[in-house]
Design a protein around this nucleic acid. Sequence first.
DNA 1: ACTTTATTTTGGAATAATTGTAAATTTCCT
DNA 2: AGGAAATTTACAATTATTCCAAAATAAAGT
Lengths: 164, 164
Amino acid sequence: MNNLTSRSTAAGQGCRAAAADRLRHFGVSVTRPRVAIMEYLMEHHVHPTVEQVYSALSPEYPSLSRTTVYNTMKMLAEHGAVTLLTIDDRNLNIDENTTPHAHLYCTRCHRIHDLPLQGVSPLQASYAFTLDGHLIQQVHQYYKGVCRECQTDLNKEPLLTNKQ
Amino acid sequence: MNNLTSRSTAAGQGCRAAAADRLRHFGVSVTRPRVAIMEYLMEHHVHPTVEQVYSALSPEYPSLSRTTVYNTMKMLAEHGAVTLLTIDDRNLNIDENTTPHAHLYCTRCHRIHDLPLQGVSPLQASYAFTLDGHLIQQVHQYYKGVCRECQTDLNKEPLLTNKQ
DNA sequence: ACTTTATTTTGGAATAATTGTAAATTTCCT
DNA sequence: AGGAAATTTACAATTATTCCAAAATAAAGT
Ligand SMILES: [Mn+2]
Ligand SMILES: [Mn+2]
Ligand SMILES: [Zn+2]
Ligand SMILES: [Zn+2]
């Protein structure tokens, strides 16, 4: 009841307990870098790149390695805890929201927005099925275009990349 | 009528006239490397990589540069003559079939198969439209899984990559 | 056909995302 | 605590793609 004694559990900015729970839920052992990464993903549902995750965590966790972020992402994807998006040909984006949904990739700001799936229900898409003899394990849908925000700014600013 | 005199026009393996026509149709000027590349694409609707196009043409056209293949692909994509697929995170694949359709990416053989689009008609998808305030210019749909062929071979051979 | 100009191609170097590796660290079990 | 197994780390290596400046080709003008 008295949580003043355990500062680490209650006073942290983001909830690392929830991150640890999620890791356990997907059957991966809980370690410091994994919790940090998962915590970041749970607080920023914005399809970050590996670089963004790395450089966001780096200040508070200087020994974190880029390789660990890559390895962790691949591992989490294999356990179904994240989805790796290869929409932007420059680098991969991580989606912590594993409910099947579609995306809009804005060719102006390079951000990725969520949209509902078309033609398949999210429930249907979350299980494997057969199509034309092929075993389907994941459904990916995305659009390329210009996002709402960028359309209004089109004439104004020149063009802002969300990286760097 | 007598085409024995003009060997180059009639006797060639693939039809470079059709390739040149297609280039003109998309409003790009006709040059030797472009014709060679377009001809290759029209004869191999198999989502080749830049490397595959390059190394296929290289023997007959030794001065061809990889850079030219890259530049040409990007240019053709801007003119709507091809679609660039960022499905395989290792490299991009070129699709000469610009009719909107879906794909299956086989995680075993890394080949990309064509499938019909779901939830959107190809006609609908071939024009820009608005969704949730966003301007949609391209519709991309693909599945990840194991293709029909690979399922039957699953126990037999270990795993064959289609590159190299 | 010949010159001039603009466009395209070329090859080699540069960039940058991702992967490989071997040593160091942490975790987990007894 | 002690030791095996798993994980992380730092850095090197790889590799797809881009950059660039010179060479070649195509187009336009005389
Ligand atoms: Mn998403
Ligand atoms: Mn296709
Ligand atoms: Zn945008
Ligand atoms: Zn296959």
